[in-house]
Design a protein around this nucleic acid. Structure first.
Length: 505
RNA sequence: GAUCGGCUAGCUCAGCUGGUAGAGCACUUGACUUUUAAUCAAGGGGUCCCGGGUUCGAACCCCGGGCCGGUUACCA
């Protein structure tokens, strides 16, 4: 539906369609794309020989000059009235078309490259084809000589709701998403080179296992049973290791029914990988290699500017056990403390706690409050208390700990990894401990998955697993501070209630 | 959830102490046609987020609601 304000444009459209009927409707055969055209042209300039055909959006004009934009860039057109076409009739038609042309329309042009007096690579248009009409006004961003932007399309609400407009008029936005895609491809290529396999596991799960979070619940009609959108895919990937794959990974959307803010969206992308016959020490080395590679290929260097700081992704990264890190930043050794001692420490630092919290949770609270923000450069925090990590293997030497690390960068958790727990008896006990926590009031304690235990009972090789938050890693690599800037379509409340009602009817 | 700020033309924004709604870009018409924030002239375009209230009179003040953003809390 279009507003009254658009009436004029619709009249214009009908006129366009009318003359358009006389125009060749065959698909236009593009010979080039704007993105590479300018550099190709500048590299090997052979004037009057290079006849090309390109397509794109018409993005405004100045006198006889105009801009054309395609997926990868813009180029200037020279379109002089009364000169485009083979004969009188065609010239007249093209003049009419140029009059109807406005910002946002898709056109195809054929012409020759030349250099203007002011040194701008330009196409002298010999033939103009109208391809598609834009009925709405694009917000045009103008950039002056000094590089200042005028009338920039900046309203975050409009930008997120109408990402197609954002992408069209804000090149830096497109750049961010291209980097996100590149980042994922770097990971894929590296993993594939190692022989690890990209797999897919269920998004609709009868038991929402593998993490501690509130799920989205739904209902399957013909089975008449509840299903949950996955909060994690960990237990399914481990089943595949049981099934005999040596290395499996998945890029997947996870869904958590919790608050939204600058770093949380209800659906987000996690990359999880499991490699058999490895442990978490090996995994730290793998992650260092991977992140260095990502930084290099996505940003062009291993040192990345973020938040006014320089983050150095070249390995090896600092390694500290969780207890060491707490001692470093509080001066207190909590490693031998019982629950009562930990509660005292929390009180001393005015950390809010409640009765449902066990030992592991209390340690985590102290860590979150006193340590996390200090971990600016990539840092591995290792060897977590067993209570907070029900899916990780017990530490080979330290009692009460598990073989786990989290990678912190700029005070944020970026990756989480274990030597995976593959002892089915231990795993059952750890699930049962979770049940006790749940009874105590912890509504995020992990749910017992009987089939997963059965899988472990058949035998799982020693395995190391890793999860990386792709959205947050992308934020890091693109210097963005809101998750919405790295998601094409971040979750938003509906624009107007009426739209929802219409949709339901 | 708390708190602060924003919402005015398609976009970016002005709008004083409450007194007929403004600019630039975009759009339309014309001029110009080697421009690059093109230029010049004229024109059209508004549910001032929504609903109530106060007032002779509300974009502006008051009450309620909505959406967006910042901060903060919660949440692996």
């Amino acid at each position: 539906m279009l507003e009254d304000a658009e009436t004029m444009t619709i009249l214009e459209l009908s006129e366009t369609v009318e003359w358009g009927e006389g125009v060749d409707r065959e698909p236009i055969a593009l010979t080039d794309y704007i993105g590479t055209l300018r550099t190709d042209f500048l590299g090997d300039f052979s004037p009057e020989k290079l006849t090309i055909t390109i397509g794109g959006r018409f993005m405004g004009q100045r006198g006889s000059f105009a801009n054309l934009q395609d997926a990868n860039g813009r180029i200037q057109l020279f379109m002089k009235k009364g000169t485009i076409g083979k004969d009188e009739e065609e010239i007249e038609l093209t003049d009419k078309m140029m009059k109807l042309l406005h910002i946002g329309d898709f056109i195809g042009v054929t012409g020759e490259m030349f250099m203007t007096q002011t040194g701008e690579a330009t196409i002298r248009v010999k033939e103009l084809k109208f391809l598609s009409k834009s009925l709405r006004n694009l917000p045009i961003v103008k950039v002056d000589k000094a590089g200042n932007k005028h009338d920039e399309f900046t309203d975050p609400e409009l930008r997120y709701r109408q990402r197609y407009v954002d992408l069209t008029v804000n090149p830096h936005v497109k750049e961010t998403f291209l980097k996100r895609i590149k980042l994922m491809n770097v990971i894929r290529n590296y993993f594939n080179d190692q022989g690890w396999l990209e797999v897919e596991t269920p998004i609709l799960q009868p038991i929402h296992g593998g993490a501690a979070a509130r799920p989205f619940a739904t209902h399957h009609n013909s089975l008449d049973m509840p299903l949950y959108m996955r909060i994690a895919n960990e237990l399914y990937l481990k089943r595949l290791i049981v099934g005999g794959f040596d290395g499996v990974y998945e890029f997947g959307k996870m869904f958590r029914n919790e608050g939204m803010d600058r770093t949380h969206n209800p659906e987000f992308t996690a990359m999880e990988i499991y490699v058999a016959y490895k442990d978490y020490i090996w995994m730290m080395e793998m992650v260092e290699t991977l992140l260095e590679k990502i930084a290099l290929e996505v940003t062009g260097g291993t040192s990345v500017g973020y938040d006014g700081k320089e983050i150095n992704f070249a390995g090896p990264y600092v390694r500290m056990t969780m207890y060491e890190s707490i001692e470093k930043y509080t001066g207190i050794d909590v490693s031998k403390m019982d629950e009562a001692g930990l509660r005292e420490v929390c009180e001393k630092f005015h950390i809010e706690i409640d009765s449902s919290m066990g030992k592991g949770k209390l340690v985590d609270e102290i860590f979150g409050e006193k340590v996390e923000d200090n971990l600016i450069q990539p840092t591995y925090i290792t060897d977590y208390p067993i209570e907070m990590t029900p899916l990780a293997k017990k530490h080979r030497t330290s009692q009460g700990l598990v073989e786990r690390f989290e990678l912190f960068i700029n005070g944020k958790e970026i990756a989480n990894a274990y030597s995976e727990l593959n002892d089915p008896i231990d795993q059952r006990e750890r699930f049962e401990d979770q049940l006790k926590l749940a009874e105590r009031g912890d509504d995020e304690a992990m749910v017992l998955d009987e089939d997963f235990l059965r899988a472990l009972e058949y035998g799982m090789p020693p395995t190391s697993g890793l999860g990386i938050g792709i959205d947050r890693l992308t934020m890091m690599m693109t210097n963005q501070h809101s998750i919405q800037e790295v998601l094409f379509f971040p979750q938003m409340k509906p624009e107007a209630q009426t739209q929802i009602e219409e949709a339901i009817d």
